[in-house]
Design a protein around this nucleic acid. Structure first.
Lengths: 79, 79
DNA sequence: TATTATAAACACATATATGTGTTATTATGC
DNA sequence: GCATAATAACACATATATGTGTTTATAATA
């Protein structure tokens, strides 16, 4: 069972990914195709429903023409 | 079933994590305690056996006093 | 209204990450 | 040799990510 902190983390990443995707002018379908992952997976990640793995993050970064560090460069709560 | 590319990715990350941990002078047990994850998990990640999730990566980065982008800043094959 | 594009929301199976144990191995020091 | 520390290597249960499919919702546009 995922805890509150992790829930917030994946939600924040979801918003971040959506921002990167829309800024790049991609639809979910385009991103999914380029990253070679199911379109549903993209939607679930953007909505903060799932906790993506390293390999999925890497695939997304490649599709967005970014490095992995760039992809995960988003504000994480410190507390 | 994980593919060859992803297998290489998580192996490289495993080496990288081990390098960060030993450079910081931590044992697997210390890192596991600080990150609040099982020690076995740390070993499996370092050996490239598993594909860690975003929340696990975040926990490791915190325990290593690094940012998430810093933690995942390792050479990824381009091909 | 009807059509199209986009995204959300479902269901479901399967692979696997996580979490908890225990035991074995590999050093390193006495 | 014997201990101790550190890591590896198992087994196992459970939660969940992935992957595939279908259906619904929403918005824009003709």
């Amino acid at each position: 069972m995922i805890n509150v902190r992790d829930k917030k983390l994946i939600q924040k990443f979801g918003y971040h990914l959506r921002e990167l995707r829309t800024s790049a002018g991609f639809t979910q379908e385009q991103l999914a195709n380029d990253a070679d992952i199911p379109i549903n997976q993209v939607g679930r990640i953007e909505r903060g429903e799932i906790n993506p793995t390293l390999s999925t993050l890497n695939a997304l970064s490649r599709a967005l023409n970014k490095t992995l560090p760039q992809l995960v460069d988003f504000p994480v709560s410190v507390e």
